[in-house]
């Protein structure tokens, strides 16, 4: 399968196989009018299989959000057909409005326009907890 190389844009590589669609939705890529390729189950020496997203446009991506969803991905910035920057997002210490608290007793279920904030409480186990009720993110 051939996908054209992009000249100015972003390549999100090393996405866990099957996780591409989640990132596609998170970054709201369906709203873009440029070429966007989501390639699933690509052979990878390092990962076995992986997903890749190519976006033929520059845009600000929320590295914290990507780091939370898949901290192993690589973000490549392409200018004039050349790779100019490579980012490895870290597991962020805090994430805001990316996931919602599922605890029915949490204040976020009733308080108007309260930000949904989660903090990283165990980096090794990748555990996030709601800052209000401390329920573990699911």
């Amino acid at each position: 399968m051939n996908i054209d190389a992009i000249r100015n844009g972003i390549v999100i590589d090393h996405i866990r196989a099957g996780g591409g669609m989640e990132i596609y939705r998170l970054l709201n890529l369906e709203a873009l009018d440029c070429s966007v390729a989501l390639i699933k189950n690509v052979q990878s020496a390092k990962m076995g299989r992986k997903d890749i997203i190519k976006i033929d446009r520059t845009l600000d991506v929320d590295l914290d959000a990507l780091g939370y969803i898949d901290p192993d991905i690589t973000i490549n910035l392409i200018r004039d057909g050349e790779l100019i920057e490579k980012h490895h997002p870290e597991l962020p210490d805090r994430i805001t409005n990316i996931i919602r608290c599922k605890n029915p007793r949490c204040i976020t279920t009733t308080e108007q326009e309260l930000k949904q904030v989660f903090k990283l409480t165990d980096r090794k186990e990748r555990v996030y907890r709601c800052i209000y009720c401390e329920a573990r993110a699911k």
Binding site: R105, C106, I107, T109, C130, I131, Y132, C133, E134, A135
Partner: peptide, 10 residues
């Protein structure tokens, strides 16, 4: 005191 968890933090 509030029945919702996290209300005093808010």
């Amino acid at each position: 005191r509030h029945p919702k968890e996290g209300a005093p933090l808010v």
